[in-house]
């Protein structure tokens, strides 16, 4: 019934709301999968450097972890942004807390992405006594 009518401008908040819905749905699948693989099927006792190196030998798992990192971090950061929006009213504190959030978010995203994309398993001696 909106076809042909003047269209309102969407804006960041609309996008953020939609992102929260979609990322939430995708994360349910990704996180449950992660939980099952890393904590149920394999336990923490058998997960070591070799395990991770072998896992990240496959581009599938690198992509899996990269998507999960981005969605989970941005989903959480946006949630925190809303909490700050609701509860931090003083202008100075708002600027400080939102800036801190942005910096922490950027650093964590950059570090995580760099590790997932550039990690190289040491060849040859994978099963040896690496930490």
């Amino acid at each position: 019934m909106y076809a042909g009518r003047e269209r309102p401008t969407g804006g960041f908040e609309l996008f953020a709301w939609f992102f929260m819905r979609i990322s939430g749905l995708v994360l349910i699948i990704l996180v449950l999968g992660h939980l099952a693989i890393m904590h149920v099927i394999h336990t923490v006792d058998e997960i070591d450097f070799d395990f991770v190196a072998r896992r990240w030998g496959s581009p599938f798992w690198r992509t899996y972890d990269l998507v999960m990192l981005w969605l989970a971090l941005l989903h959480g950061l946006n949630g925190l942004r809303m909490a700050i929006d609701d509860y931090v009213h003083r202008r100075g504190w708002r600027v400080v807390s939102l800036a801190a959030l942005a910096v922490i978010g950027f650093v964590l995203l950059a570090m995580g992405t760099q590790i997932i994309l550039t990690f190289e398993a040491p060849t040859g001696q994978m099963a040896s006594g690496l930490p």
Binding site: M1, Y2, G11
Partner: peptide, 11 residues
């Protein structure tokens, strides 16, 4: 509708 939606489409 478009007018009202535009009014509601804010923070």
């Amino acid at each position: 509708a478009a007018e009202r939606l535009a009014i509601l489409n804010t923070r």
